[in-house]
Design a binder for these strands. Sequence first.
DNA 1: CACTTGACCTGTCCGC
DNA 2: TGCGGACAGGTCAAGT
Length: 293
Amino acid sequence: MPELPEVETVKRGLEGRIVGKTVVKVDFDWPKGFPNAPGDVEAFLLGASITQIQRRGKALIIEISTGYALVIHLKMTGQLVFVAANQSDRFGAGHPNESLVAKLPDTSTRVVLDFSDGSKLYFNDQRKFGWMRLMPILAVEDLPFFQKLGPEPMASSTTNAMLRARFTNRKNSMIKAALLDQSVLAGVGNIYADEALWGAKIHPRTRVGQLSDSELNTLFTELRSIMEQAIASGGSTDKNYVNADGQKGSYLQIARVFRREGQLCKRCQTTIEKIRIVSRGTHICSACQKERL
DNA sequence: CACTTGACCTGTCCGC
DNA sequence: TGCGGACAGGTCAAGT
């Protein structure tokens, strides 16, 4: 389930691997995942080169020399995996990714881009929730998804005061629902919502209006800190997520509550519980994160 | 408008 | 062993 740290990790991986490369072939057989007008691929992608890669929220924007861009959302099980021309150089016998690369393309492969140097980029998506779309760069920001998207939590221009104002617009929501709402704040998903709430000692069912300014500030500080650590760990791999080299992220090895139900709270040794809030699996320490009525 | 819930998908796991 | 059902969770549409 790629959230901001996972998508950022993919973005950084792709920057060093596909920028400057020329696309010579595109294979896809899945209209819902690549819903483009006939002819777009030939006119605006083939023969063109990758110029830069951006991330906004959980979406990636791969810009192309034709003034078009590939906009990609990995949703829950999407992967973007780069494979060099000579696989054995990078994924030879004994390499941790040998088995993964050996089976690409697999049954989850939706799109394959071939570059002129023989390398390839695979877009895999087991559950088909993700999408990839070719469109003019100038039209990207007009997509409803980007129109509604809230500010970037890690940007220096995003202040606590600004975030407090956005959250308190949703004062009757549970804080976890507000954190997951991409129109309030971009990039937070189930993993880092639980991790940040534990860090700030806030029960996820608390209504936004019940939180003081200082509690909200602590929550935002925790969120930034957690996301920074997650990026440094290459993101979180629960099942599907891998980076641009096909490697897993290691954040869950240092996670405090997520997927730690039944284990002890690292702060107070109480057993971590898994409950259900806003239809999502939610991990809490009921001693550190007291529910208020 | 604020807020919640179900649908979209497929692979996996659990109980029978 | 096989099978039904619950579960995983990002976003959007539709509901209250």
